[in-house]
Design a protein around this nucleic acid. Sequence first.
RNA 1: GCCCCGAUAGCCCAAUGGCAGAGGCAGACGACUUAAAAUCGUCACAGUGUGGGUUCGAGUCCCACUCGGGGCACCA
Length: 821
Amino acid sequence: MQEDYNVTAIQDKWLPLWDDLKPFDSSRKDDTRPTKYVLDMFPYPSGDLHMGHAEAYALGDVIARYWGQKGYNVMHPIGWDAFGLPAENAAIKRGLDPRAWTYENIAQQKASMRRYACSFDWDRVLQTCDPSYYQWNQWLFLELYSRGLAYRKNSNVNWCPSCQTVLANEQVVQGLCERCDSVVTKKSLTQWYFKVTDYADRLLDDLSQLEGKWPSKVLSMQRNWIGRSQGANIDFAIEGMDQKISVFTTRPDTLYGATFMVLAADSELAQELASATSKEIHEQFESYLEEVKKANDIERLATDRKKTGVFLGHYALNPINDERIPVWVSDYVLADYGTGAIMAVPAHDDRDIEFAKTFDLPVFMVVDTGEEDPAVSGIATSGDGVIVNSGELNGLNKADAISKAIELVEAKGTGKGAKNFRLRDWLISRQRYWGTPIPIIHCDKCGEVPVPADQLPVELPASEGLDLAPKGTSPLGAASDWLNVDCPTCGGRAKRDSDTMDTFVDSSWYFLRFLNPNSDEVPFEKEQAEKWAPVDQYVGGVTHAILHLLYARFFTKVLHDIGMVDFEEPFTRLLNQGMVLMNGSAMSKSRGNLVRLSEQLDIHGVDAIRLTMAFAGPPEDDIDWSDVSPAASAKFLARAWRIAQDVTSKPESNFASGDKGVRKATHQFLSGFKEAIESHKFNVGVAKAMELTNHLRKAIDQGVGPADIAVREGAEELAKALSLFAPYTSEDMWQLLGHKPTVALAQFAEVESELLVEQKGIAIVQIDGKLRDKFEVDVSISEDELRELALSSELVKKTLQGKEISNIIVRAPKLVNIATK
RNA sequence: GCCCCGAUAGCCCAAUGGCAGAGGCAGACGACUUAAAAUCGUCACAGUGUGGGUUCGAGUCCCACUCGGGGCACCA
């Protein structure tokens, strides 16, 4: 009895069965399969899953299911990045409890993932807002604290006036809050930091281990972000004062060309020097500083900005030649990069020459690059050249002069080779409610006191009665029962730290928590880490290229140093899937181009949507939903399904007697398919499955017929391959073919390589690279035979008439190229 | 300004330096059908953004440029 392919029916049929079978349980004690750890970036539970999730999880699932069918015990867990501002903001807006709101969304997403047939191990699940999870955030915080890697300091921090909280450097995009696009301002606050800068060198150098395994784009973004520069710190004495100005420069070779100094207007040293000068200059400085403070990052970053500044009335002495040079302040020097002061070499730096031109300061060329003297042209030169006007450096090139200059200042004791980073320490305090409480108690007598381990977790108090609306201080400050505690050291009255941690702390180590998601003893067991970690394949969006991935790499290195893991990089391979767009732009309600996932699933079925995601193009490319056709995917799945339905042979495993041509197609498919999936060309893998389907259709209708055992072999491998993209259809095909569920555990057949070898092949003959003739040859043909054959071709002879052969290239059995003069 | 990625048929995309086409969409035609849908089959369509170079041979490698996308940027 022939039936129709019914999407809804097979979804309803198989989903409950899989729940019973638990094919993706990775914790079976007697499991001897080799292991793989495949991880999708966990979602933020704001509403139901959307098209972007659908793509990410479809692709992650292809990889996880593939390794499962290759015979691996695959750990493919899922969790929720459940703390954070959106929950809180939604809760404020609707007067709800953020906790209830979050758990409701998690339940909804979980149901959608189950329907979407993600191959998750549902026994390895976590939610970062559970005390059983965040207690380990607190534990890790204290580990970092005890090693001096978590510390508190006062500084001018990034402040989002709309979110009413501080932001990490990484959360400020082009001067705007990455979350709400408000203009970020500066505020002087005492906040907690993680000392990421201690790891800057390792974070940068270890990127080379990931070369070829992570997208090069992400590697370069991380390198840019860490931003290491090599150079020297050089001290300039200040005339008539004990103070020194220390500068960082990447161009110590231009030391003789320094004609003035510039201090960051908002640096402490500027303040000090301004106090030790005439009243008039001091007043000028103060009013300039006011101006500078008013400017926000947007204005400051404007490229055509005029240089401004104030002369401080002081002179510094160039350590290499005792030249007397004036000291200025300006806002183009940043207080928090390098030493907050520079030696200005206008001849060889764009910014410095702009400043020199504005204030009529001297320009003195010390590198002859062959271009016009900057003092004349007004254009700074920064290339390599011959050092001039520089005493003992004269005649050297740039690189040699840099080394020599460092030697000279080191010998004089006025400088040192140094490197500098763009990367800053990670500010982790947040003045918000829905996050992990910082496990520190502030005591007037004892100062900062860590919460003793046996008092962890410091649970978040209920939100009831608290005003969650942003007001610049943490809502927890009003939870007086929770806030006021006895000091663990002296027993006196003390207060808890009322800030919560940046949620990126949660996601910096969650991939390790999946090893023991329910342990109350340890964050994770070392033996489990040895068995599973690091993550073999990580899948997620490129939006996390800097923030999350950098922090996770930092945590991993810290955990390595603590001795908790034996590796230094958390994610061996990384796949960044693209975005799902609609008509060329990101989907959004306000743009009116939102495609609802649930609707798509209702119309086309889960399998068709998943297949469409995989088939749309290379996974890292964006998918424009208007370019793809889920209906076509559904059509193909029905076509494949009918192949399984048409097979009439009984299940057996000896296919040797099957039709050679069909078997060849099957094994060529297998070989190409595996290669495509392993190199993450999922679209090519799908195309190959379509090709096999077309071949089998033809074999059934016009060839060997549905009873040939080779057709069964092809149909079975097709079913297994489709399991990666279309689990429901595939499972149903597997049953039609007389097998028991679940196809997800059925392993791919080994490629029989003798079936891949062709007896005959087409050889082509080119003359000067142009195709002139082709003929069928035996693949074992020798070069000489093929050359003879080519030269005896009538077509070739005709083309060669009147031409002189200069060279004949033979690549048996495929090609002969005859070059003429 | 610096760095990275991309450009192949009407569209989405394939192609270890060796016949430009694997697959799909849209299209044309045919079979089945009273008809349509579904299904099955057949066909057409580009010389690879531009200009150079290397090579017996370049979509593929190199150089310059155009366009599109992304990252960093008063970072010393």
